[in-house]
Amino acid sequence: MRSYSITYFIAEALKGLWRNGVMSLASIAVLVSCLIVLGAFSSLVANINYNLDEIGAVNQIVAFIDPDTSDEDILALRDSIAAMDNVSAVRYISREEAYQSEKEKYSEYPELFAKLEGDNPYTASLVITFADIDRLVNLEQALGEEESIYKVSKRTDIAATIESFKQTVILIATWFMILLLVVSVFVIINTIKLAVFSRRQEISIMRYIGATSGFIMVPFIIEGVIIGLLSGGAAYGIIRAAYGYAARSVSEQLSFLSVMPFDSIGWYLLGAFLGIGLLCGVVGSLISMRRYLDA
């Protein structure tokens, strides 16, 4: 019964990492940078999606009513819109209500409204909740035919802007990551090559004794695995801390945006980081050991 000691392999791998400390650190640093970029961009994209969903959930458009329209006509219009296809609710906001609501919203600046006293610049509006965003165009068309509606504001414009911003972010992130991953693999290849080089005499003795390529290579592959896993762990820790900081400053300064709780993406990030780290480590080791596969 043959038995190979895992402790031997791990001990050899750790010795290798220690002997080429600077290169090992360099490999870890580059891989960590790469994973941080990946983590930052994917958190950004996840949060964009999260906010898009919130905007989408509202499913509302606002029809502003011509100021010359009488209250009666507005109520009649409200009823006719409520009967339209794809409309699930219509809420009437009178000029007075609009004024009060804005006044409350900017309660920190009462002087703004003091100047307006007796003169209400707001128009009445109908907030229309629709059921299906895909048939929104038809609804807009129908609303456009109503003479007493002078403007329809829809939030889908914002959604489209955010969506295109998201696409740009994904594109940049993808290229950046590919570049960094390639660099990481190269640095790992170099690190393992140095480890192999510093042990070339041992390797030649092992060959004469009859050690298989597998036996000779395993410590170097473990070395790559350790680099990968350490990088993944470190990147996760850094992203976690940075996310908390970013979330706090966003909710303080950009309060209209919502920030996803870290826990809902944390596990995915950790999994992806460890997975990519592992893959880079193993691929790097295998490439640098390639020529030692010959007898």
Partner: peptide, 14 residues
């Protein structure tokens, strides 16, 4: 074949 070489070498003390 190369993959057999390690096992062959175990029969030789160098």
């Amino acid at each position: 074949p190369d993959r057999v070489v390690p096992y062959y070498r175990r029969k030789i003390g160098m």
